[in-house]
């Protein structure tokens, strides 16, 4: 059973005749533990797709089911709590809370849910992502790559079943991108996470299990990634 599925997903902006079809009937299924990249030119609707999958935005039509939950049936508050517990996000802009330290940023989703962070686990992640020294720094003191690693750490902290990444390396130079991607891949493998990642970089897509190509709001093809089994 797929952990994530989208059926007939449509998202229209505006009205006829100036309607923008950001998504125009997308069907997608992602199996648990899969690493899927979505590639496409900018404006192809890939970010919109990701927003729908993460419950950040509501589709005009269609259904998104994540881990057995139908997102369209949830209220804003429920969606937020659902995200907090089940979905990790990594964005192009690093999206760290500027007023919290690295550690606090990482444990934020855990604490938001009123849980005590599992210190050993968090330390493991921090260690794994090479953030040990920056543990107590504020985000603005970190380099782009470091910030993105913190964002990944935060996305992993709640052990979410799904990790959604929107061009996580979009703002990074090539070397740093490779570094950050490695981290993403390694950690997801280690913690058995399902990853849906958006990128327009084929090299990066190469690292995934499956590549979904999207064009003008429609899936135009699927390719196999390096790790297809």
């Amino acid at each position: 059973m797929p952990i994530l599925s989208a059926q007939g997903l449509k998202k229209y902006y505006g009205e006829e005749p100036n309607i923008v079809r950001a998504l125009d009937g997308v069907d997608l299924e992602v199996e648990a533990g899969e690493f899927v990249t979505v590639v496409g030119a900018s404006g192809s609707g890939k970010s919109t797709l990701l927003h729908m999958l993460g419950g950040l935005d509501k589709p005009t039509e269609g259904k998104v089911t994540v881990d057995g939950h139908e997102l369209d049936k949830m209220s804003d508050e429920e969606l937020t709590i659902f995200r907090r517990r089940n979905v990790g996000f990594v964005f192009q802009s690093f999206n760290l809370v500027p007023i919290l330290s690295v550690y606090e940023n990482i444990v934020l989703p855990i604490e938001l849910d009123g849980n005590r962070p599992d210190k050993a686990f968090i330390d493991e992640i921090i260690d794994l992502l090479g953030l040990k020294e920056k543990r107590n720094s504020l985000p603005n003191m970190l380099s782009g790559g470091q910030q993105q690693r913190v964002a990944i750490a935060r996305a992993l902290a709640t052990k979410p079943s799904i990790l959604l990444a929107d061009e996580p390396t979009g703002n990074l130079d090539t070397k740093t991108s490779q570094d950050v991607l490695g981290v993403l891949k390694m950690t997801s493998a280690k913690f058995h996470q399902t990853i849906v990642m958006i990128t327009h970089n084929e090299h990066i897509a190469q690292l995934s299990d499956r590549i979904v190509r999207i064009e003008d709001g429609k899936i135009v093809g699927e390719g196999r990634g390096i790790n297809e089994k």
């Binding site: 470091q146 740093t176 570094d179 490695g182 390719g223």
Partner: peptide, 26 residues
Amino acid sequence: LPVYTKIIITDNGIGIYPDELNSIFK
């Protein structure tokens, strides 16, 4: 790199077609 160290091995051989880059590790 900060987290990883990259070992690059380059040859000037016949090369691989881009559409096959994902498949060669299969």
